[in-house]
């Protein structure tokens, strides 16, 4: 009896998590797949027709926004990496006793809703807002100068909103680097730059890897920044899904797009992990 219980224990422990995943992940995905393969409209109702052609149709219609989302998400991720790494490095190695203060400052924006903060940026950067209007009155910027409704505004918003998700994992990875290992590198004739490239950077790559995943995925699929800070030429795939679902009530199209976005991101992550798996990268640095 005891042996049976011992054998069952791992499954019993996995049960709550398993149920959670079944109810809130498997069921919705199955439902989404099912909805994507239906045809019809809100008035006449939808029926399951297994219309595979929908994927081709929505891609043909919205491939521009698809590509734009990936490009925006990618650019934002690269900028975040460039900004976040030095920040994380500075906090981990130079901030001394004030570490927790700086970490708190990085988390501070989370105390205000993501949407509200983005709307605030909209007010601040509006053509007749408190920044641009005075500058224009003073003649410091031309009359046709905008920030809102530009690519820069959308990517800037993405960087602003997701930056902490890049800083924190990199910080955690850097924090775990034993300072004596850096000294060992210096002792073995590595200058500051070599010590960083050969030892600190490779040891922090797991953090970079996690940071990129945690920012690229939400940035690529985010509808809020493009909605509030962008214009008609900055629409991202998240906005299209939103419109198809809530405005056009074309549930199959919205589901198909969601499904494709998920597939593209999953394939992207897979390729990324294979190509830049932390183990591989670290081995390259060791050479």
């Amino acid at each position: 009896m005891r042996r049976v219980r011992a054998a069952l224990a791992p499954y019993l422990l996995a049960l709550p998590g398993g149920l959670w995943l079944a109810v809130f992940l498997v069921v919705p995905i199955a439902t989404m797949a099912s909805v994507a393969l239906q045809t019809g409209n809100l008035m006449d109702g939808f029926s399951q027709t297994f219309n595979i052609a929908i994927f081709g149709e929505v891609f043909a219609q919205y491939h521009t926004q698809f590509l734009r989302s990936i490009v925006y998400g990618g650019i934002a991720t690269v900028i975040m990496l460039v900004v976040a790494y030095p920040m994380a490095y500075w906090i981990a190695f130079k901030a001394g006793r004030r570490k927790s203060v700086y970490l708190f400052l990085i988390l501070l924006p989370f105390f205000v809703s993501f949407v509200l903060r983005t709307i605030s940026w909209g007010f601040l950067l509006a053509d007749d807002g408190i920044v641009l209007a005075p500058l224009r009155d003073l003649g410091l910027i031309p009359d046709d100068f905008h920030i809102l409704a530009t690519t820069t505004a959308v990517i800037g918003g993405l960087v602003y909103n997701f930056l902490p998700f890049m800083v924190l994992p990199i910080y955690v990875a850097l924090e775990r680097v034993d300072p004596r290992v850096i000294e060992a590198a210096q002792d073995l004739y590595a200058g500051r730059f070599q010590a960083f490239v050969r030892v600190v950077l490779p040891l922090s790559l797991p953090g970079v890897f996690a940071g990129v995943l945690m920012t690229f995925i939400p940035a690529t699929s985010d509808p809020v920044n493009a909605q509030i800070l962008g214009g008609t030429s900055n629409t991202m795939i998240g906005n299209i899904i939103y419109t198809e679902y809530l405005v056009n009530n074309d549930y199959p199209a919205a589901s198909a797009l969601s499904f494709m976005l998920m597939a593209v991101l999953l394939i992207g992550i897979f390729v990324y992990a294979r190509a830049l798996g932390t183990e591989n990268v670290m081995e390259a640095a060791a050479r």
Binding site: D178, R180, V181, E183, A184, A185, D187, Y189, V199, A286
Partner: peptide, 16 residues
């Protein structure tokens, strides 16, 4: 240290 011709064995080794 990187230009000194001495090497160190660290306490707890500090291997890469």
């Amino acid at each position: 240290p990187n230009r000194r011709d001495v090497n160190m064995v660290f306490q707890s080794y500090a291997l890469f």
